Amino acid sequence: MTAQTTPTSLILRKEILGSRRFSNYWWATIISVGAIGFLLAGISSYTKVSLLPFAEPTKLIFVPQGLAMGLYGAAGTLLAIYLWLSVIWDLGGGYNEFNKQTGDIKIFRWGFPGKNRKIELNFKASDVQAVKATLREGISPKRSLYLRVKGMRDIPLTRVGEPLALSELENQAAELARFLSVPLEGL
């Protein structure tokens, strides 16, 4: 999450990294290559025409080996398509904008295509009760920031997936609480 403030420090804007992370590009590429390899091996075992230059899948018996490889390849291809589409659509990406000048807060994220593709929350800064930081350690650690707003559920402000470093979480929480002049909860 990168912060941008105007010279007058009346607007705080934090960009949120969505699914366009290095890890998603990495896994989408690895799964694509593996899935295409399995799919071509399955097709080669059926047609008895080698489609892979580095292997001889024509020697595989189609039932059950070639069929299983083809099914694994098809499933992997579907998973790779989903990963690539989530990267292209930048799911979860967006920004948090806090404007002292107008007293408005805008939380924006990209979602799946459709009528709800743009997820946008607008409310007044005067409705903010606190900035809340949550920490959960263990096998799947969770470190995130929430905005506590009157009449609403806690609104997440940090990206999904990779947990923030503890020092970064503390700094962002303190900066935001100071900017909005509200208490900080959870640390």
Rank of each mutant, 00 (worst) to 15 (best):
Y72S: 04
A55I: 14
K100E: 06
K115F: 15
F38Y: 04
L79H: 05
G103Y: 02
R21W: 12
A35M: 13
T134F: 11
S126W: 08
Q129G: 07
W110Y: 10
G151K: 08
V49G: 08
G37V: 02
Y95I: 07
F108D: 10
S140D: 01
V128C: 14
V160T: 01
W27P: 03
A41C: 05
I61S: 12
A130R: 01
F98G: 06
G111F: 05
T58R: 00
F54I: 15
G66F: 11
I31K: 04
Q65P: 03
S19D: 06
R109G: 03
K106D: 11
T77F: 15
L71V: 13
F123Q: 10
E56C: 03
S44H: 07
L78N: 14
N99C: 09
Y146K: 04
K142Q: 09
L145P: 01
E120A: 14
V87R: 11
D127R: 13
P156D: 02
I30Y: 04
L83F: 08
T29W: 03
L157R: 02
D90A: 15
G151W: 03
L121K: 00
S44P: 07
R21S: 07
I139W: 02
G92S: 08
Y46W: 10
A125F: 13
E120N: 06
S86V: 05
N99S: 12
W110D: 02
I36Y: 06
G42M: 05
G70W: 00
G94C: 04
A80M: 01
L83M: 11
G73T: 00
F54R: 11
V33M: 12
L71P: 05
P141A: 00
I107D: 02
L157P: 01
T134E: 02
R153A: 13
T47A: 14
I36H: 05
S44Y: 03
L78E: 13
L67A: 12
D104E: 12
T134H: 04
I31M: 08
R20E: 09
E137G: 08
S144K: 02
K59W: 13
L60A: 10
I81N: 11
R136C: 01
T58A: 10
P64H: 14
L67C: 08
I61F: 15
K132E: 15
D154L: 01
D154E: 02
Q129R: 11
L71I: 13
P57S: 09
I81A: 15
P141M: 00
M69I: 11
